[in-house]
Amino acid sequence: MSNKDGSVNLTKINNDVWVHTTYTKMDGHSVPANGLLIRSSKGLYLVDATWNDKLAKELVKLIKQNFHQKVKGAIITHHKIDRVGGIRALMKANIPVESTSLVAKMTKAAGYPAPKPSLDNQPVLKLGKTIVETYYPGEAHTKDNMTVWLPQYKILFGDMFFALEQRNVGIIDEANMEAWPYTIQNLMNKYPDARMVIPGHYNWGDFSLLSHSIDNLKTYQSSKQMDFSQYEKDII
């Protein structure tokens, strides 16, 4: 499913989970950002708000046209533009938006309206029979980045993972490069049965995306001549 100009796509993963992908221009290139649409007996829920309000409006319109249901809520996984850019459009559409207090604080500091910080006390959402588990694994791409785990489908989503076609670490202006590999290892330990891993950008895949992410970070660290010996010792 896509809108007329192809800037918003919905890709079916299974009968209850879709990836929403929206595109923006950066340095003359079209850059995709992924989020989730989850269908439950309690309604439709979004994970992340696209790059901007125009795209968020298009996404909500596309969902309404194809599902004939209103989006009941949304989760923001960190404060940067690819996650939170369309938050105003969601709020204007009367879609409740929630996250952690850290994400809310950093979102407000970035100039956006803050999501409700309800996930601190209720990180696991029970939407009828559908479970949506949010988790803060540690600093990585940003200080506040969270993951979303759908245990019934073994799907893990997060913007600190790299797609297999990504051979660099992307934009790292706010990243904690030393903590990042430990954060990924934490997720590998917590979700060893993840069957599908959906990154914030580009194509999704299986559990191997987690080790690939560590490999990308190792390559970056090596290029910066940083010492990985202790990290290697810790995970062997």
Rank of each mutant, 00 (worst) to 15 (best):
E232C: 09
V47L: 02
V197Q: 02
W204T: 12
L62H: 08
S118E: 14
K72T: 10
P137N: 02
A33D: 10
L127K: 12
T183C: 13
K42P: 00
H20S: 09
P96I: 00
K61T: 12
N216P: 06
Q221R: 12
T130W: 15
Y136P: 13
M26W: 03
N186G: 15
S40Y: 08
Q152Y: 11
Q69R: 10
V84P: 02
N52I: 06
G86H: 07
V84W: 01
V197P: 08
K116A: 11
D227P: 13
L210P: 15
V132E: 01
F161M: 10
D159A: 15
V71A: 03
L44Q: 03
G35E: 09
Q225N: 12
I171R: 09
R88G: 00
A104P: 04
Y191D: 07
T11D: 08
P117R: 03
A56P: 12
T22V: 14
I38Q: 04
S41I: 10
N15M: 05
D120E: 08
Y23N: 07
I81R: 11
Q166K: 04
M177I: 15
G86W: 08
L55D: 06
M91R: 11
P181E: 02
D16E: 11
I236G: 15
L119N: 06
Q225Y: 05
K12Y: 01
S7K: 11
I184V: 15
K12I: 05
T219D: 13
G43T: 12
I155F: 06
N52W: 04
N203F: 01
G85Y: 08
L36W: 05
K42S: 11
G43N: 09
F161C: 13
I236C: 08
L37Y: 07
Y23G: 02
I13C: 01
S99D: 11
A89W: 04
G111E: 05
Y202F: 12
P123V: 02
S101C: 08
L59G: 06
G138P: 10
V97P: 15
F161Y: 11
D227Y: 01
V103Q: 06
V103G: 14
N34P: 02
G205F: 00
S30N: 12
Q152H: 14
K154S: 10
Y135V: 12
H78I: 08
Y45E: 02
N189D: 15
I95M: 07
W204H: 15
T107Q: 05
Q185H: 10
M106P: 00
G111Y: 05
Y45W: 14
A114M: 04
V60C: 03
T130I: 15
V124P: 07
E133D: 09
L37F: 05
N14C: 07
G6L: 07
I214M: 02
N14P: 11
N9W: 14
T22C: 10
L209H: 02
I95H: 07
N176F: 00
G73S: 03
Y220H: 13
L36F: 06
V169N: 05
N121K: 13
L187W: 00
Q69F: 08
N14M: 08
V17D: 04
K4M: 06
P151T: 10
N9D: 12
E174Q: 12
N216L: 05
Y191H: 04
T77P: 00
S7T: 15
